[in-house]
């Protein structure tokens, strides 16, 4: 394993949306590192900025209204992505970074065959001839578990089930042997039984293609199953960063604890599930100080005065909370 070699380094990432004179700070100062061979999960509620983070890495933020602010930095193997020309960035997308999305039902183009949509990437990035690309498409479909790959290449997305389409999406994403696979809620729209198959497939592909995974999810069950390390996002910022085991055994941030507490437990019988009171504030109206303060049970005076820093409290465990100031 080549663990601890940095593959992706995100520093001070700020992605803001400028709409109707309001500024929505969807991603507001995110730092993290993804090592080679690692599966890093970003968890958070809707609106926490996790998907915008992943789209920022691909530079696929709709602009306007979105903009990645100037002092942000996203480095893939020490190469700054944010200053690449659009043409060079296109060589990164689909080639060095593959991406799969939440909605397998709508993420494939309905009017082109599966084979066409896989081959397209190969023709573009690997300069393959059409025939060669089609052959490779069949092989890739076999790799992602299609028994009748020769037929599937000629089929259209609507002829496949959701799980099969997500497999096809994975085949597209892995087609050019990417260094990084970004999976944005890859299993959210799937049946539970299919979910674990797709997760297993992703991990298998990561090993097979010697790649790494950035997994965006709101499902802590998925995190526990596949991630090595976890970032918890809230209000456009990372509030906790930990090894997956540490996060589940000794969560530090009150938000993380709240999330873990709200998972139903089969062993204990409760009348009401626990939940975190309140809702995520909209990105154009974050509170002063700690963004979680209005919903926090441990709120102190200093919490509403200034936003705490994300600081290392234990070995490879960072948290953004004043409770651990000592």
């Amino acid at each position: 394993m080549k663990i601890n070699k940095e593959l992706l380094k995100v520093k001070g990432l700020k992605t803001h949306f400028f709409m109707d004179g309001k500024i929505a700070k969807a991603v507001d100062g995110v730092d993290f590192t993804l090592n080679k061979g690692e599966t890093l999960a970003i968890v958070g509620e809707s609106g926490s900025g996790k998907s915008i983070t992943s789209l920022s890495i691909m530079r696929l933020i709709p602009s306007p209204p979105g903009k990645i602010l100037d002092n942000s930095s996203i480095k893939l193997e020490n190469r700054e992505l944010l200053t690449l020309s659009e043409k060079d960035m296109r060589k990164v997308r689909g080639n060095e970074i593959g991406m799969i999305f939440q909605e397998p039902m709508t993420s494939l183009n309905p009017v082109f065959t599966i084979g066409n949509q896989i081959a397209e990437t190969l023709i573009k990035h690997k300069k393959m001839k059409k025939k060669q690309a089609n052959q490779r498409a069949v092989e890739l479909l076999k790799v992602v578990g299609f028994a009748r790959a020769e037929e599937i290449v000629h089929e259209y997305p609507h002829q496949l089930s959701g799980g099969m389409r997500q497999r096809a999406m994975i085949a597209i994403a892995m087609s050019c042997d990417p260094k990084l696979l970004i999976a944005d809620e890859p299993t959210t729209a799937l049946d539970v039984t299919i979910q674990s198959q797709i997760l297993d497939l992703m991990i298998e592909m990561k090993e097979k293609f010697d790649s790494s995974i950035l997994l965006i999810t709101h499902d802590l069950g998925v995190v526990a199953e596949v991630a090595d390390r976890v970032l918890v996002m809230y209000g456009g910022q990372i509030v906790e960063e930990a090894q997956v085991r540490d996060l589940f055994t000794k969560p530090m941030h009150p938000y993380t604890r709240g999330l873990l507490d709200s998972i139903p437990n089969l062993d204990t019988d409760v009348k009401r599930l626990k939940s975190i009171r309140g809702t995520v504030p909209p990105a154009h109206r974050f509170p002063e100080g700690c963004r979680f303060a209005p919903r926090c049970d441990h709120v102190m005076d200093q919490c509403t005065a200034a936003n705490p820093e994300l600081l290392q409290r234990e070995e490879s465990h960072k948290v953004r909370c004043y409770l651990y100031e000592s």
């Binding site: 296109r90 999305f101 990035h125 597209i172």
Partner: peptide
């Protein structure tokens, strides 16, 4: 559409995204 985002995430050129993926639909 989602599939246009997919097409862009595949690294296709703007022409290819517009004239192949968007126009056909």
């Amino acid at each position: 559409s989602d599939f246009i985002r997919t097409a862009r995430a595949k690294g296709l050129s703007n022409q290819s995204v517009l004239y192949k993926h968007t126009l056909r639909n």
